[in-house]
Simulated assay, not measured.
Amino acid sequence: MAACCSQPFVDDRDQHGRLLATQVSSKSLLADVANLTARKGTLAAHIARLERRLSEVLGQAAQDASGLCAPADIKMLTCRTTGSEQQILDLRGELAARDEDLAASRAANREPMAQVNR
């Protein structure tokens, strides 16, 4: 049996190889019960964490295998594409505003240049 568990009787042998029964105190048995109860709680919590993690991993594997969701790299590329499209729209807006400013400046300079050339 495991070393962490006290047995009610210890396996001792005399010089002829016969078993001798030695009783363990009730206090040591109660201490063993308390220690084993605490260990049981620790192991139960650890098992629950492992089960939760296994469930997450198996769920992700099933989701990936089903093809219902896009793989992570496709999601990342989609996000990058969306960001790039937004940046393009912003830059086109800035370009249009600059084109309007340039057209207004040309119109404003057209009349004085026409007067100078006359």
Rank of each mutant, 00 (worst) to 15 (best):
L95H: 13
I47D: 11
S28F: 13
Q60M: 07
V24R: 15
C69H: 14
T42G: 13
V10H: 07
A97R: 11
E111R: 12
L30S: 10
R106P: 00
R13E: 09
A2I: 02
R98G: 00
R106Y: 12
A108S: 05
Q86S: 08
D101F: 03
A62R: 04
V24K: 14
D90S: 09
A65Q: 03
L95Q: 10
R118N: 02
M1Q: 11
Q87M: 06
R118T: 00
R80T: 11
C4L: 06
A38V: 03
T82E: 14
L50H: 03
M76W: 08
T42C: 14
A108W: 01
S84R: 08
L91W: 02
R53W: 12
Q87D: 02
S105I: 00
A107M: 03
L95W: 01
C5S: 06
S6M: 06
R80D: 08
I88K: 12
R49A: 15
S55G: 11
P8D: 04
E85Q: 07
D12I: 14
E94C: 06
R98H: 02
A65G: 00
A62T: 06
R53C: 07
Q7K: 05
M76H: 13
L102D: 09
H46R: 13
H46K: 15
Q15R: 00
L29D: 02
A62L: 10
N109G: 05
E100Y: 08
T81G: 02
G41S: 09
N35H: 14
C69W: 13
L95T: 11
L43K: 09
E111Q: 11
L95F: 08
F9C: 02
V57A: 13
L29P: 00
H46Q: 11
A72V: 12
A34W: 15
A103E: 05
D99A: 12
A108D: 01
R92G: 03
E56H: 13
S28P: 00
L50W: 04
A97C: 08
M76Y: 09
R49T: 14
R52Y: 08
S25G: 11
G59P: 00
G41N: 06
I88D: 03
L89K: 10
D14A: 00
L95I: 10
M76C: 08
D90F: 10
P8R: 09
M1F: 12
I47V: 12
A31E: 15
L95G: 06
D32R: 09
L43S: 05
S25I: 04
D99L: 10
R110D: 14
L19D: 02
V57M: 15
S55I: 01
A103N: 04
A45Y: 04
T78F: 04
A45V: 05
